[in-house]
Amino acid sequence: MKNIVEVKNVTKEYKELKAVDDLSFVVKEGEILGLLGPNGSGKTTTINCILSLLNINKGTIKIFGKIMKPDAYDIKKDIGVVFQEVAVFEELTVYDNLDYFCGLYIKNKKQRKEYIEEAIALVGLENYKKFYPKQLSGGLLRRLNIACGIAHKPKLIFLDEPTVAVDPQSRNNILEGIKTLRDRGATIIYTTHYMEEVELLCDRIIILDKGKVLAEGSADELKELANMDEKITVEVDHIKETVIEKIKYFKNVHEVSLERNTLIVTYKKGKNNLSELIDLLKENKVTYSKIFSERPTLNDVFLNLTGKELRD
């Protein structure tokens, strides 16, 4: 597979702060790459650097195998960007907004009309063509924002947190739309700090923190880095110290912690961990209101790598 984007040793400094710090990664043709990181980790800055919206201090950026520059219009024509903030004309209807933004790329009127109709269908705004942005709900507005960025059928799409503050219905619509775009052959770079989204959507994930790559791989590969395989949480009414000691002696147990009434047991690997634990609790007459088992999340990965939570 071809490399669509190549970022090599890119550094972007704001006065003292290194917003992007010697960053290198590639994006392969046809994949959805997730850039995951907490607020301020440099996701937006990275995108702005790739797009030549910001001057970089060091490094090189290639798109479609060519060096990206502010006047590289032959590259730009195949790129679509959906920025974090909604950028549409208040004075224009949904349709006219799309007409303008698509018109910046597509001169042919008939072709443009087709493209716009397709974009409207993709984000499900068919019934709102004549609406002004002020008349749209937050979620619908975000969908319009996305449609404006992708209507010209770009080969490479950047989406910067397109689902922030969006209702579940619109969120599902947006995520489905992004998958559709990928299935039509687009390469997508998707930033978010919602780990569930990347897991659901992305073929590959890069975890960013302080402008650096912390880890890279598929969701499953990354979870190996969480240093555990299963996490069991028990809401106990009361538990004796001796019982906790007994749990620690199970062969797969990695760590046991008790905070107030919440008992958390993490396992490196293994099978039947849950039933083993339930049996032990029963034997020792420990009563509990809740018990559940989880696979590790990307948050656990992030926690393990940095010692802090992905989300504040």
């Binding site: 960007v81 920025f83 903030e85 950028a87 004309f89 910046l104 960025g149």
Partner: peptide, 14 residues
């Protein structure tokens, strides 16, 4: 407007 301007700048129109 800041964000609209960004959109125009990254587009293939000079």
């Amino acid at each position: 407007e800041k964000n609209t301007k960004k959109r125009i700048i990254i587009s293939s129109m000079n």
